[in-house]
């Protein structure tokens, strides 16, 4: 008996159906896990909701959360702290990552060990890294105060987490330590894909080390660099655990980024409508920044 309906995926005209079919579970999952909560967040951000519940009737539409957000000094402070953090951490991660990648790309004795050491911070779980840094910078019994006093840099202990500038610096250092190995690994992969012929030709033309770096290495790394910088920037933007465990956003909101502010409003003060508004604005900033960086990348190659 002939089946009433059959899907012949072998037919050339329907071959692409198989692709859609195979993609469907992943697309559905992404829709469920990412797109649906995103839509709900946008919806909640336009309601005056304290603790959101999906089974409750929708509250009236309001732009009050956004009005409050854009007139809030705390929001602009958090945006400024986030921007500072993104720039400082990304730049230092790039410099350290590129430097260490160039170093371990050379042939020398113990290169494998050096590569392992460079990549090590990346493998350390974030919370453990934070605990180590918190102990190192402890105001009363920390290693850094002891070292600085012994070296004569300071004559009294520094209260690292009671000073806005010092706390911000500690957060930056922790994030750079945790983030630079990723850049290093990506750069190393990029360096190994540059043909040796380029360098040989440059040497024949009389190019020195600096000229080879500026004219061959950096331009060849640009595609990798663009993607890596976007990933690092997004990581700094959304990172929560390092700041939360280290300073909780303090002192005096000196380390309060947009993600810390979102969490605090949602789960500290139970103002989920307002927290959603911060989340939506953060998302928009991230999308614009990523688009600008990725969009510009091909021009730089």
């Amino acid at each position: 008996m002939k089946p009433r309906f059959s899907l012949d995926l072998a037919r050339p005209s329907r071959r692409h159906w198989l692709g859609y079919l195979l993609l469907a579970p992943a697309v559905l999952l992404i829709g469920l896990i990412i797109v649906y909560p995103l839509i709900v967040s946008v919806d909640i951000s336009f309601q005056n909701v304290n603790i959101a519940r999906l089974d409750q009737p929708r509250r009236p539409f309001t732009t009050a959360n956004y009005e409050r957000l854009f007139t809030s000094a705390d929001f602009w402070n958090a945006a400024w702290v986030t921007l500072k953090l993104v720039i400082i951490v990304s730049v230092f991660c790039f410099l350290l990552g590129l430097g260490t990648a160039l170093l371990v790309n050379n042939k020398f004795k113990g290169r494998s060990l050096a590569r392992l050491l460079v990549a090590l911070p990346w493998a350390v779980p974030e919370v453990i890294a934070v605990v180590i840094f918190a102990w190192m910078f402890d105001s009363s019994f920390g290693l850094m105060n002891w070292i600085f006093i012994k070296l004569g840099f300071i004559d009294t202990t520094v209260n690292w987490f009671s000073s806005p500038a010092a706390a911000f610096m500690v957060v930056c250092m922790t994030m750079i330590w945790k983030g630079y190995p990723f850049v290093s690994i990506m750069m190393l992969a990029g360096l190994q894909s540059i043909p040796e012929d380029f360098y040989n030709a440059a040497r024949v033309d009389g190019a020195n080390t600096w000229q080879r770096l500026v004219n061959i290495t950096i331009p060849s790394l640009m595609p990798v660099l663009g993607v890596t910088l976007v990933l690092v920037m997004l990581w700094v933007f959304r990172d929560f655990s390092i700041i939360y465990v280290l300073t909780g956003g303090g002192p005096l909101k000196a380390t309060q980024t947009l993600s810390i502010m979102t969490y605090e409003q949602a789960f500290g003060f139970f103002k989920m409508g307002y927290a959603s508004a911060i989340g939506v604005v953060t998302l928009i900033i991230c999308v614009i920044a990523s688009r600008l960086m990725i969009g510009r990348a091909p021009d730089n190659i």
């Binding site: 009363s140 006093i149 004559d155 987490f161």
Partner: peptide
């Protein structure tokens, strides 16, 4: 050594 090792009292300030 310039570092206080013993405190009069103790409070959580973080």
């Amino acid at each position: 050594d310039g570092i206080i090792d013993q405190f009069g009292t103790g409070h959580e300030t973080r």
